[in-house]
Design a protein around this nucleic acid. Sequence first.
RNA 1: GGGUCCAUAGCUCAGCUGGUUAGAGCGCUUCGUUCACAUCGAAGAGGUCAUAGGUUCGAGUCCUAUUGGACCCACCA
Length: 758
Amino acid sequence: MEKTFKPKETEAKTYELWEKSGAFTPNIDSSKKPYTILLPPPNASGKMHTGNVLMIAIEDILIRWHRMKGIPSLWIPGTDHAGTETQITFERELKKIGKSRFDFDRNSLYEAIWKFVEDNKGLVDAQMRRMGASLDWSRYRFTLDKQVVETVCDTFKKLYDNGLVYRDDYIVNYCPVCGTTYADIEVDYKERSDPLYYMKYGPFTIATVRPESKFRDTALAVNPKDKRYKDYIGRTVKVQGLLGEVEMTVIADPEVDPKFGTGIMKVTPAHDPHDFELGKKHTLPVMPIIDLNGRMDFGWFFGKKDVVPKYMERAKKYHGKKVLEARAIMVEDLKAEGLLIKVDENYTHSVPVCKAGHDIEPTILPNWFIRVETLKKPAHEAVKDGEVKIYPKWREVTYHRWMENMHDWALSRQNVWGIRIPVWYEVSKNPNITASFLTSDGKVITGKLSELLLAYSLEELKAGLQRLMVPKEATYVFSKESPGKGFLQETDTFDTWFSSGQWPLVTLGYPDSPDFNYFYPTSVLETGWEILSKWVSRMIMFGVYLTGKPPFQAVYLHGIVRALDGRKMSKSLGNVINPEEYIEEFGVDALRMGLISGTANGKDFNFPRDKVIAYRNFANKLWNIARFMLFAFEKYGKDVPWYDTSLKKKLKPEDKTILKELSALVKTVDRNLESFRFAQAAEEIYDFVWHELADRYIEEIKNREDQEVCLSVLRHTVLMSLKLLHPFMPFVTEEIWQKIPGKFEELLITAKWPEVQT
RNA sequence: GGGUCCAUAGCUCAGCUGGUUAGAGCGCUUCGUUCACAUCGAAGAGGUCAUAGGUUCGAGUCCUAUUGGACCCACCA
């Protein structure tokens, strides 16, 4: 044996040994209750980050522990297509070569992204192997596997048949730059300073950051308790604006904050979520003024008759301008008209931004929706009633709050990369659908189907199709395949969380397969708390909806690994820790243990660099204990008897002490693992092995006469320690195990977990 | 605005259902290298457990308030 443990030289070999042994694939044994974990699928084209390593470490501990207990243990690997994120990454690559997604028709773009993902795929898988993850690779899934897509589409159909799917105009978080909508939970808010304009508005003064939207205001709102405006409620007032005089009704709503600005607000249902709600409540018309490219659209005004030429000139001036450009011009015009009263330059507020950091423009867009009211109730109750237990317990509040506030789920994404919604529109019946397509000579043409088909053939349009904008009253049919010649398929894809929300079902072959029947529902779902609402809640929802049973019995939420400086890791801060470097230097076992010992309580924690080093030293300590033992065996020269009860009478006090401590350790490790106290378990083993076994017991027996007794006790203790430690530090323990001659169990990974000796 | 968590040794943190002298890793001091390991061993210094009340025979651990910090959700005309 080498003087020190060299992780780099043995890790790959050891993993291969496990994989070849078939230990990762459990036997389906109907007499035993299985233990199952689904790996939260990382982004297929991504790379592992420290959070992934922690996730792998925890799940691997649970799986290896149960496997050694003789329980059929299944850990299913997979990767996610990560729709928006991947597409943004891909488009960034396109930009480098001077291209954009508009240079592709939909199918070619999809194929290009597929190829891009395929080229980058495999890195994550390789890294998972490197981490020692004892995943059953024979059951590997990707969220765009044919079978997964089929199941996801069937679920959509079922939801529709149950009346839970509808199409509607809706105010969505639309990003004009990305050309797509974002779910509420995908939107970030950025603190920013913008001028707050106080403008004259009929008899009132109102404050707004967005004067450009005023042309499509449909009401004014005040707080019903506000005495200042009491007399105006219900009345119609005349408002002189930049495009002439309009009439506006004053409504009362308790949502209006009398203390903000002047206490009176203008309502623009088409471009503000809050106003949209208000509009629905008071049945106000919804009138958009900003188009999907983020430009002002005054088309509605041009058709008007008897308009003063000055106003028409203005409308033409604003038309087609980007929001910010238009705003600047309007502010000048307001000044000129004497309508601008004052500007508060120091007003700060938070503005919604998309994943790529662009401003969100709340917009009205036809969208596919899921009605969540009936779906969320049983999912909510499953946790309330303890059918699904959440650890740590205090995280449960987040779940309940989310469930209580969850509103209908906007399902469509204007992404190409994803599962295309299995709905088809018959061209002849839907002339009002707007389509964008790429002509054979590379031009993008946009227009209504009825007009486009006069100049182009349907085949041409189909071949170059980029996207459809379908009015909500369009007729459609469900089908996974084309229902006929005259049909066009919806170009929107499902929200990524719609497919990943069905992960427990699609990985196990729902609705009917031996795996599904045996392994569903799974045992534990282990993931970061930040996707409790995005992902965990959806899985419970779909699990209960489709099978009547929640997909797992327990949820364990680990904390976020922060950088060394205690802040979130981010590229812009330059504090991102690359796990590979730590693996190279200290070994996988040390990195896993270091992270595990940081995660007590499921709280966020700083990357525990010192602990990684400490556990590297520990792996070496363990190595040297074994080395000492093998030397001692050699020196003794004869076969050391296996430890069993017949030896009891010959034991010295120190033997009895170490054996007693070992028994206590087995008990406490089991108990701690049962309640997800990984750090506690790890530290107790560490303490025992280092301080009791190495520092004390080994020193005590160095000069003993009865070597056969103490060496027998030593070997027993070492073997048991290796077993206890194996789930935590699989590589070094297996490597040592392989070096100890004459064992009954060939591989440590499948060796029998210690039981408490009485 | 609503909510969660945190405040314990110089640093990073453990301390589960309240119970004798409060723990770990790193750092620090002193000593020790043929004899498993310097990625080591032995000994040691260092904390009025944020503050103020309260419950209790007993509180770092439970309750209330205050201060400071991290984060989540919602809203922001």
